[in-house]
Nucleic acid binder design. Structure first.
Lengths: 235, 235
DNA sequence: CTCCTTTAATTGGTCTACCACTTAACTCAT
DNA sequence: ATGAGTTAAGTGGTAGACCAATTAAAGGAG
């Protein structure tokens, strides 16, 4: 028995894999571009001569990787192929692991420091413009509203983009919403601290502009200090 | 609008996610040990009050992560968790879009430095035992085989575990197999460098044991230097 | 002719019945 | 009492029917 086990991993191609291969070829051949809708499950099922269950499984698998997105009662569309594949993976794994808040924040801090350091070295002029715009949006939101968490986080996301590391940016995209949710629930962002935060953002942006890595990292570290302390308390 | 889109993936917990959480809790609570059979799909469907389709979807997803394995017409069993479970997870997707290797490696280095630093502060005695075991497994594999990449990476994964940050560990779990695949394809690991690597692993473990953070980080940095250079060349 | 309302067709989501295979219990000849 | 042969219950696999939401087409009022 055990000896024969070695030969067992041959695996015939399952119907699902066949379907995946077909859909994949439709995409790589350019017949299906990002944004296009897939033929309906019934049509595919009939065309490929298999049950709809198989089609659904195949779609689900591709959706799992972030290649497709199903819109209920509407259709299945093809996603962009830049980093979306990883994005789907991350969020799926995250659901299974159920991380604690402290780990999330600690990881965020680590990545932010890494990102801001990269940003000082790699930022383009366009990055600077985006950062400036994000900062202004934050400032504007503060003046008219109580809740500016979204704009706050968006600025940090732009820093990650300016760091020009797709993987890190994707990770930030996955982690930040989770942290944001807890922020809102615990009402972490005090009213009086917003102006202080705005100033810190400004200082960080300046450091990025001046390409002063050490200064940027230091400022970011100070900026995120409170959050880290806060997450320790919750723990 | 476009800015807020990034955070828009709010996600309400689907039935499938609920089931996954329940099955997971059965496993982590020890009620289901590796090798055990899951209750049948019908039983679960009745017990949890949902259709069998949902149960099947949940099982399929967990199977995808290597946590479960279904034996047709027989049952579903719980696997041990290992890096090999995730191996090849990306391989399906890679055919469509090859992720930026340099970003992957750069991110890995950043996280490894972060992890090893945490490990020096938080490692338990059990962590040390696991690291020791992983190191021995690596050494043993080197002596009998040419390919010890799995064991190499497993050691690094154990360091991430010793760092006691669930998020970072999860990210490593996702990134490492992908890097591993490229390693194998490009045949990066030279025969002569294996003993050198083993020694470096040993030194890192010692630094963790002695709780010398600075030394551990420095050693890790040196250890990963080649990989980073290599990824730059490929780029 | 235009715009709003209504209606019919189509979509993905869900459930249930049936299938082939496995497994364990049972029967019966030895 | 034992063993092989048989049978029945249980398993995951598959397909099709039905559901609610969406969407596009048809109809009618202005």
């Amino acid at each position: 028995m055990e000896l024969l086990d070695n030969f067992k991993a041959i695996e015939v191609e399952t119907p699902v894999d066949k379907i995946i291969r077909q859909i994949r070829s439709l995409i790589v051949s350019g017949y299906l571009a990002p944004g296009d809708k897939l033929p309906s499950e019934r049509k595919l099922s009939e065309k490929l001569g298999v049950g709809r269950t198989y089609i659904r499984d195949a779609i689900k698998k591709l959706e799992f990787f972030g290649i497709l997105t199903t819109h209920p009662q509407s259709g299945v569309v093809v996603n962009g192929t830049d980093i979306s594949a990883m994005e789907g993976l991350f969020s799926n794994v995250m659901k299974i692991e159920r991380p604690d808040f402290f780990s999330l924040v600690e990881t965020r801090v680590s990545m932010e420091l890494f990102s801001v350091q990269n940003a000082t070295k790699r930022r383009t002029d366009e990055d600077l413009k985006n950062l400036e715009k994000a900062l202004e949006a934050y400032e504007a939101k503060i003046k008219i509203s109580q809740h500016a968490e979204n704009e706050d986080f968006l600025f940090h996301l732009k820093i990650a983009e300016a760091g020009h590391n797709a993987v890190v940016k994707t990770m930030m995209l996955i982690i930040l919403p989770d942290i944001l949710a807890i922020y809102k629930k615990e009402n972490f962002c005090g009213e009086d601290e917003k102006l202080k935060r705005l100033g810190e953002h400004r200082a960080i942006l300046d450091a990025i502009k001046e390409k002063d890595a050490d200064k940027a990292v230091l400022l970011m570290q100070e900026h995120l200090k409170n959050v880290l302390e806060f997450s320790k308390k919750i723990l």
